[in-house]
């Protein structure tokens, strides 16, 4: 039954999400053409950099956010509005419904994030700002200190971060919607409220978690080992973040698991 649910969930939302991702690709292609059309002379560099940042900010934030909101919306609409009358009378368990949404939503979330990174890289290449002497040194520095100089390791960490942050983001949205269902009236409003609250709490908690590597860093600095510990710090920072996302994701999952098993109340 879970397989069938996944099949129908996929059928119901692949068109919208594929269209969103294609738009992202289209914007990137157009962006590349514009960037390439501008000659990379010294005086144009600043302009190119601004354009690059604008384009990437637009495509990544807008499309990531839209995908995220669409996935949340789909979860809410399909399970807790009129369509929920169909879904919740099918001979499936509430957990199967939840997992079908989670798996399909997570898949698209990851696809969208990875595509965003790819588009960012392509736009960066097209803008030619990395050919500048000082950008390159900055990047080399970053690579060297964050991950000991290996781009492969960097990509691996980025992938892990994407998987972990996607996991916790999706579940945070689902959990907010499930919590909203506990409220007697204004369930959607309550869900948004819970989302904001969860977001704030997770931000505070992850900042607290960051204290640990930051303390390491400060101690290292005091002892005069800055160079050696800097790489340790940046590498650890990302690892700590990943750990935090996984931790939050698991907590959200446990809460969702508990809430989704309860019987629904569709008014």
């Amino acid at each position: 039954m879970l397989g069938k649910l996944i099949k129908y969930e996929w059928k119901a939302c692949y068109k919208v999400l594929a269209a969103l991702n294609l738009t992202l690709v289209l914007i990137t292609v157009i962006g590349c053409l514009i960037l390439q059309a501008i000659p990379s002379t010294e005086e144009n560099i600043f302009f190119l950099a601004v354009l690059f940042i604008m384009l990437s900010a637009l495509s990544i934030s807008a499309f990531n956010l839209t995908t995220q909101i669409y996935i949340y919306f789909r979860f809410y609409k399909n399970l807790f509005t009129a369509e929920g009358y169909l879904m919740h009378t099918l001979p499936v368990t509430p957990l199967q419904l939840f997992h079908s949404k989670l798996i399909v939503g997570y898949f698209w979330f990851i696809v969208n994030t990875l595509l965003s990174f790819f588009c960012l890289a392509v736009l960066g290449w097209a803008s030619r700002i990395f050919r500048l002497e000082n950008t390159r040194t900055e990047l080399q520095f970053l690579f060297q200190y964050t991950i000991g100089g290996s781009p492969g390791k960097f990509i691996l960490l980025l992938l892990a971060a994407t998987l972990a942050s996607g996991f916790s983001s999706i579940l945070m949205g689902y959990l907010s919607i499930l919590l909203g269902q506990l409220v007697e009236k204004y369930k959607l409003g309550a869900a948004i409220g819970f989302y904001i609250a969860l977001y704030l709490v997770s931000q505070v908690l992850s900042s607290l978690l960051m204290i640990i590597p930051t303390t390491f860093m400060a101690v290292a600095d005091d002892m005069g080992f800055y160079g050696e510990f800097a790489s340790c710090f940046y590498g650890n920072l990302l690892l700590w973040l990943i750990a935090a996302w996984v931790l939050f994701g698991c907590a959200y999952y446990a809460a969702c698991f508990f809430l989704a098993r309860r019987r629904v109340n569709l008014d």
Partner: peptide
């Protein structure tokens, strides 16, 4: 099975409302 009862329970062919009852009920 679209509402959770405050009290009591409904049974279809002896199955409390849930997975088993849903395959017996056409709504």
């Amino acid at each position: 099975g679209l509402l959770a009862p405050t009290e009591g329970m409904a049974y279809v062919e002896g199955n409390p409302v849930g997975l088993a009852s849903k395959s017996l009920v056409s709504y």
